[in-house]
Design a protein around this nucleic acid. Structure first.
Length: 376
RNA sequence: GCCCCGGUAGCUUAGCGGUGGAGCGGUUGGCUGUUAACUAUUGAAAGAUACCAACAGGUCACCAGUUCGAACCUGGUCCGGGGCG
């Protein structure tokens, strides 16, 4: 049974919907901040729910494979599952660890899975579809991601094809194992498939067809926003989209910037996650309606106004640019928290506004208006 | 009044006769399913790493002299710190 229902459509292709999970129904489109290790960086799960006026983070994504290494499954299970462990009562996605593959921590890739050394204790670990499905079910997240093989930007067609075929094999295995184990664990966890294919449109098409043919609860497009130029990212998504059923929830992994979010929403994408807002915040780049600004710049040393006048976030309500710049300059961790709060609020607020626009069937206009002010 | 020490980029300083280096700060970019900072990771250890990159900052206090050549040696002046009277 499809847990996703579309409720509104905009002429642009953007849509509103509802995804039913074990921890409530969440409206789409939505953006998930990363809580890789069961927390954000400098941001607590509690902060995520108190970013500012009228904005609540409804979903987070944690990393199943990293959590399985530390603190380990037993501890999370003893805590009563991931939601209780990390004090987040809303929807939690878990990522499988496929993305970490591109980060050079894996020793070798085989047809059966991934062989690597744990970054924590250097133990050899093998990750297989069965293992990752067990891990995700034991963690108790609402949505599990299948184990995929993500190739890096710039690899050859052959290499991309190989990774895609691994992804397909692991996808089939993940699905059947998950279906079997879901009963055993008495879980209502959803499982999403992941389309790969790098930046070769014919592979994207093939992958979209293959993954869509399997009975996943949602379809993700992975392997984008990994260093490629923007137009290539859109092309990769566009190559896959026609072959993904419209009635399933569609998730583009790893995106992104405010403009990218709107561009993908216009294409009918419902779900996102990215580190982009928080990583930029930590490095001093803040989002405003008029574009980005870098509080590190000396010109803000005596600017006693908020990052963005009229912003409803906690940070803009209580702190000035001069103060935030001071904190950042002396490397106080509080700066990273306060700046992250602003950027996360900005993105969540943007999605809320986008939803309003879709409801009123004026999304294209809304998107162009935003781009005009924001730039890029 | 005398003696000692010092004056090198916005700040802290290395260089001590052969065409001015560094760290911090500054400026400008970049960050997209985060192994990415206050205590952690890695290493047997000494240690190493703390987001990355590029760029811009200097008549080496001043004036004379010695020398082929002076931030560097000599004399004087000014400024700062300390000591003795």
């Amino acid at each position: 049974m499809n847990p996703f229902k579309i409720t509104h459509r905009d002429p642009s292709g953007a849509r509103l919907g509802k995804l039913k999970t074990a921890h409530g129904t969440i409206e789409t489109p939505f953006f998930m901040p990363a809580a890789t290790k069961a927390t954000g960086k400098h941001i607590t799960t509690d902060d995520y729910q108190h970013l500012g006026a009228n904005v609540i983070t409804k979903a987070l994504i944690a990393n199943a494979f990293i959590l399985s290494l530390r603190p380990g499954l037993e501890i999370v299970q003893k805590a009563g599952g991931l939601h209780l462990f990390m004090n987040f009562p809303e929807v939690i996605f878990t990522d499988c660890g496929g993305f970490q593959m591109s980060r050079g921590m894996f020793e070798q890739k085989t047809k059966n899975g991934l062989h690597f050394r744990s970054p924590f204790d250097n133990q050899k670990v093998v990750l297989t579809p069965r293992k990752i499905m067990e891990i995700e079910l034991k963690l108790g997240s609402d949505v599990a991601m299948m184990l995929d093989d993500m190739s890096s930007y710039g690899v050859s067609f052959e290499e991309a094809k190989q990774a895609m075929e691994n992804t397909h094999r692991w996808g089939s295995e993940s699905l059947s194992i998950h279906q079997a184990l879901r009963e055993h664990y008495q879980s209502k966890q959803l499982l999403f498939g992941i389309v790969q294919g790098n930046f070769y449109p014919e592979l994207r098409k093939e992958s979209a067809k293959f993954i869509s043919a399997l009975d996943f609860d949602g379809i993700a497009i992975g392997g984008v926003a990994i260093g490629e130029p923007l137009d290539k990212m859109y092309k990769a998504v566009d190559a896959a989209l026609p072959f993904i059923p419209k009635n399933k929830i569609r998730y583009v992994m790893g995106v992104g910037s405010p403009v990218e979010l709107l561009e993908l929403i216009a294409r009918g994408i419902d779900c996102f996650d990215s580190v982009y807002p928080t990583q930029n915040a930590r490095h001093g780049t803040l989002f405003t309606r008029e574009g980005t600004l870098s509080v590190k710049q000396g010109k803000y040393a005596q600017d006693f106004t908020p990052i963005e006048t009229g912003c409803g976030c906690h940070t803009c309500h209580h702190y000035t640019k001069a103060y935030l710049r001071h904190l950042l300059t002396i490397d106080e961790p509080a700066a990273k928290r306060l700046l992250s709060v602003h950027n996360l609020y900005f993105v969540q607020r943007l999605i809320l506004d986008a939803k309003e626009a879709i409801k009123e069937k004026r999304f294209a206009e809304f998107k162009e208006g935003f781009k005009r002010n924001f730039g890029r």
